[in-house]
Each structure stands twice: as structure tokens, then as C-alpha cells.
């Protein structure tokens, strides 16, 4: 699917394809896998999605961002399956005439993708346990939670 892939994300290639004579600013965000979370050592992550819906929602988010921030281009690709430490889990690239629009749009896209799109992270720890959905970055701007949700622990 256009916005989801099970293979390594090569953001350099995506970035190189992003040249546009109308763009004075191109911003690239790469969400990468940390080796720790809340004091626990992480071995790797696995991502799962309700794929057709996630792909469709990312498409809609990009269209909204292009229109709202007057972008020349926007791309977002999210990994599925196993991602190793320092691997790229999600990439967002935005191109606009000026940097403010490119930065703001990039943040708008990643926040929406993290908070709204049906994609789930499964974290695996060095002690052999694992947990679902503990990134808890469900905040936009003010630091307030956008929604009150529960994070589920796996065995």
C-alpha cells in the first residue's frame, strides 16, 4: 500500500525525489526506534495496522495538509512488521514555499497519524515481556491529552 510498507524505509531516496522548483523549504521527519522507553530496555518494535483504513486515512491527512498549509508536496510512509533499534518507523516529508508552512504541516501530519490512524506499536523488552501502545504521545500542542484512553499491556 502507498503509505504502509513491511520493508525498510529509505528516507534518503524519498527525499531525493522531493525536488520541486516551487519549494524553498523541505522538512523531513523520521520517527525512529529508541532502545529504551520509560526506563526499560527495548529490543525491537512490531507495528500492526488495519491496513486499508490506515492507508486511506493517511491519504486524507496528506490532502488536508496540502490544502491547509499550501504545500507543494507531502508524503508519509509508515512501517509495518518488525523494526529494529534505530530503524525508521515513520517518515513525513513536506515541501512548501517557505519554512513555516513546511514545519507546521509536517507536525500536523505526524500528530494526526500518531493519534488517529489505526496503527499500533508492540514494544518488546530485554526482559522478555512486551506491551502494546505505550508511546502515549497523544498530545497536541498544549500537552493536554486529546482523548482519554487506556493503554493495554500484553503478556
Amino acid at each position: 500500500m502507498k503509505h504502509l510498507q513491511y520493508t525498510d524505509l529509505n528516507y534518503s531516496e524519498l527525499f531525493d525525489e522531493f525536488r520541486n522548483p516551487n519549494s524553498g523549504a523541505v522538512v523531513l521527519f523520521s520517527g525512529e526506534v529508541r532502545d529504551n522507553n520509560k526506563g526499560r530496555e527495548v529490543t525491537h518494535l512490531e507495528y500492526e495496522a488495519y491496513e486499508p483504513m490506515a492507508n486511506k486515512m493517511i491519504d486524507e491527512i496528506l490532502l488536508e495538509a496540502v490544502s491547509r498549509f499550501n504545500l507543494n508536496q507531502a508524503v508519509c510512509v509508515h512501517r509495518l512488521g518488525r523494526v529494529e533499534i534505530s530503524g525508521c518507523a515513520v517518515v513525513v516529508i513536506t515541501g512548501a514555499g517557505h519554512r513555516k508552512e513546511a514545519y507546521d504541516a509536517n507536525q500536523f501530519i505526524i500528530d494526526k497519524v500518531k493519534n488517529e490512524v489505526p496503527i499500533w506499536k508492540h514494544e518488546f523488552f530485554t526482559d522478555g515481556t512486551s506491551e502494546w501502545g505505550q508511546n502515549c504521545d497523544c498530545v497536541i500542542g498544549t500537552g493536554e491529552h486529546e482523548h482519554d484512553h487506556h493503554h493495554e499491556k500484553a503478556e
Partner: peptide
């Protein structure tokens, strides 16, 4: 129907 838990991508 599809039951969707809170998103945790990224």
C-alpha cells in the same frame, strides 16, 4: 465491524 483500540503508531 472493526473494533479499533487507541492508535499508537509513530
Amino acid at each position: 465491524i472493526f473494533l479499533i483500540p487507541p492508535s499508537s503508531g509513530g
